[in-house]
Write a protein that binds this DNA or RNA. Structure first.
Lengths: 115, 115
DNA sequence: CTGTATCCAGCCGGATACTG
DNA sequence: CAGTATCCGGCTGGATACAG
């Protein structure tokens, strides 16, 4: 299911975007990639402890939508890694807006992304 | 459960905010209020056809978090209506960021919120 | 290491009926 | 009008095992 084939509930850009990022996990995977993480294990090791089946599912969806891509982790090994496409990168303002709100209004949140 | 008592999955402001708006309905209710809607029936009549039990649930949560409030719809009648609190209003940049992204990247979306 | 598969409890949410 | 209640199918997601 490509982004262009997304069947939205309505013509509303908010509702349509929520079909993609309107859940509790997708944006966290994207956050990790924005922080430079590239491997399955790295995503799995995040502080929220995403389950492997959920992670697998989200990676598949993000690939299908063209928000992320696989690439060779090194020229020699066959190992693959994930990174954001330009389209995925374009979510950065969205991520920042959400994170900024949390930082301003939810007690106990911290700016630094845990490494 | 007040916002100050939100038990987040992590210290990450993104993850924490997603505990509140990380679903496919909450932000749509907020959108409707930002568009001036105030009554249960008006939210229910939105283009995405939210189910009444879901709407009821989200209104309750938003009230508990202090993002919306009830107020008398008119000085004479006892009718109540909903509106955003200042805290709820502060989500506007988040809403706009998400809607802007959809408008730019998802085909078929339209700027105008259906009245 | 990078995932996929499976079991399974519980929540989400659509449809509908009903109450104040 | 403003919700609450209930039925119930299906998805979400945690735990664990397993495969390439």
């Amino acid at each position: 299911m490509k982004l262009s084939e997304l069947n939205s509930r309505s013509v509303c850009p908010l509702a349509s975007t929520l079909e993609i990022i309107g859940d509790r996990w997708t944006l966290l995977v994207i956050r990790d990639m924005m922080a430079g993480r590239q491997h399955f294990k790295e995503f799995e090791a995040g502080p929220e402890r995403i389950a492997t089946n959920i992670l697998s599912d989200r990676l598949r969806k993000l690939l299908a939508w063209g928000l992320i891509e696989k690439f060779p982790a090194s020229p020699v090994s066959k190992q693959k890694a994930y990174r954001l496409t330009d389209l995925g990168e374009s979510l950065r303002p969205v991520m920042n807006a959400i994170a900024d709100w949390g930082l301003a209004h939810i007690e106990g949140t911290e700016k630094r992304i845990s490494a």
